[in-house]
Design a protein around this nucleic acid. Structure first.
Lengths: 277, 277
DNA sequence: ACTTATTTTGCGCTGAATGCAACCAAACAC
DNA sequence: GTGTTTGGTTGCATTCAGCGCAAAATAAGT
């Protein structure tokens, strides 16, 4: 029996080409691939690949280095993705939130960082809900359970700065709070989730995990609030699950499997060596 | 005369569809788009659009909400976009942008030159954000605050040519605008940053500075838009900081610390600009 | 139930993609 | 310089895949 042509031939070819161009690891060095190499790798006619690439270039899907004559992925892809990621986030996240909400039977939220505030984009309530509606509500970063996850990529210096501006200064509790915060964030970096206890803040306890968009930047955080605080071990279990869910959501958003964002290639301090560390 | 078939028909159609899906804002709300709506908007047969979308879905370029039956861009596109040259740039630049954004509490952008348009790669909003999302959006060079920084290495003749093509010709304002532009660009060459006032253009004021890649070529520009225009001196202070940050970013991108690219090898300039500022 | 709105499918017809081979252009060797 | 290798584009006849129309299917109101 013949396979039904789900995808048109031309598109399939184009996608294969793009996929080859995306795979920057096996081929000859970092920047770009030549027509011949691509054709050989795909087992296609050079002429087809040549023509297809010209067409793709005209559309901005690929761009060609004028001197080396090699192709790589183009700005158009970036542009398309960048414009849509925002609105996509909520829709793609919904099933994941629902999954967590039913699994734990706790309120689950999707939050983003806006300035120094955490904005809750959407919430899925638990079954036994008397619940407050948090959608559209902003709270300061330090108050929010999701805050730790959202700041995970920040430089320590910037985090301190932010905390000092927000916490009542001079108090011992502030100092310890600051250290606690940094420890929590280190925990996020290491294990992919944060456990928030009910400390100085009045918000409920909960766990949260960062969600990364296609480029690897933290775009949002999933947070599960916990009403009756359970045992420490239980919280960690939940954390691991939430982290895994956040990771899957990140993949659904287009995050390439390989690198979970900055942290691997720690970039130099943008503030320069001026600040004390 | 026959138009030369630069791009294949199928690809063109697919790109138009993707472009529609990316353009949220005008259509029916934030949700995706239906086959009919897309077909009507493109002036194409519904059947074509339907089939094309199914093919695109099979490739993961678009995805369909199973309940609303509407399409939106898919994970594959984002995954590809993440491996773009631009994406790498964004990742490295992000901490630098965030630094500037919190330092000045103003919207900060990373822009690249694409043809005669300036494409905004990423934006870090200020805390008081009323903010439009500029990511992935292109504006003409002359309209963008970052334009001056991006064109800093161009020959004066080419810049004039570009400006004449863009500005309304014959007007006095155009002439003065052209001279102003060249003066601004000379300022970039000398001091490493540009201050954009609100002149004939409707864009906001701001400062910008060019970012150079490893070869010393201008690869992007950092621009900080300023909402309430502050004093001239304040703008210069900001400019110096932005220029310094751009320089650090350039280093992070692999630019050898010594040579800030073309401009240094211009005229000998014995007047002692060696110290930079 | 009916009616409307929206999407998919069947099917001849036409035009555009295909593959081969010839052609072009650098790069490298001698 | 001449010849050779490697990498890329173009001409052209054949054929197959996409095209549009209209009808069928599906979902959504009423």
């Amino acid at each position: 029996m013949s396979e039904k042509p789900v995808s048109s031939a031309g598109l399939r070819r184009d996608m294969e080409i793009l996929e080859v161009l995306a795979g920057h690891g096996d081929g000859p060095d970092a920047d770009g691939f030549g027509v011949n190499w691509i054709a050989e790798r795909l087992g296609r006619e050079k002429s087809q690949v040549s023509r297809a690439l010209r067409a793709l270039e005209a559309e901005g899907m690929v761009e060609r280095d004028p001197v080396t004559r090699r192709y790589r992925l183009g700005w158009r892809l970036f542009s398309l993705a960048a414009r849509t990621q925002q609105s996509r986030l909520v829709r793609v996240a919904e099933p994941f939130l629902r999954h967590l909400a039913t699994l734990f039977d706790e309120d689950t939220h999707l939050c983003v960082l806006r300035g120094e505030m955490v904005l809750t984009l959407s919430s899925v309530p638990s079954s036994r809900a008397y619940h407050r509606i948090w959608e559209g509500v902003s709270v300061p970063v330090i108050m929010a359970a999701a805050g730790r996850s959202l700041l995970a990529d920040w430089e320590d210096g910037q985090i301190r700065e932010l905390l000092r501006a927000a916490l009542p200064s001079g108090l011992d509790s502030a100092i310890s709070g600051e250290e606690q915060w940094l420890a929590d964030i280190e925990h996020v970096r290491a294990f992919g989730y944060a456990v928030t206890d009910v400390e100085l803040e009045d918000s409920a306890a909960g766990v949260s995990a960062p969600v990364r968009e296609h480029r690897g930047l933290i775009a949002a955080a999933i947070s599960v609030s916990v009403t009756r605080t359970p045992a420490e071990s239980r919280m960690r279990e939940m954390g691991a699950v939430v982290a895994e869910t956040a990771r899957r959501l990140s993949t659904a958003l287009g995050l390439p499997p390989g690198a979970p964002g900055p942290g691997s290639d720690r970039s130099p301090d943008p503030a320069g060596s001026a600040g004390g560390r």
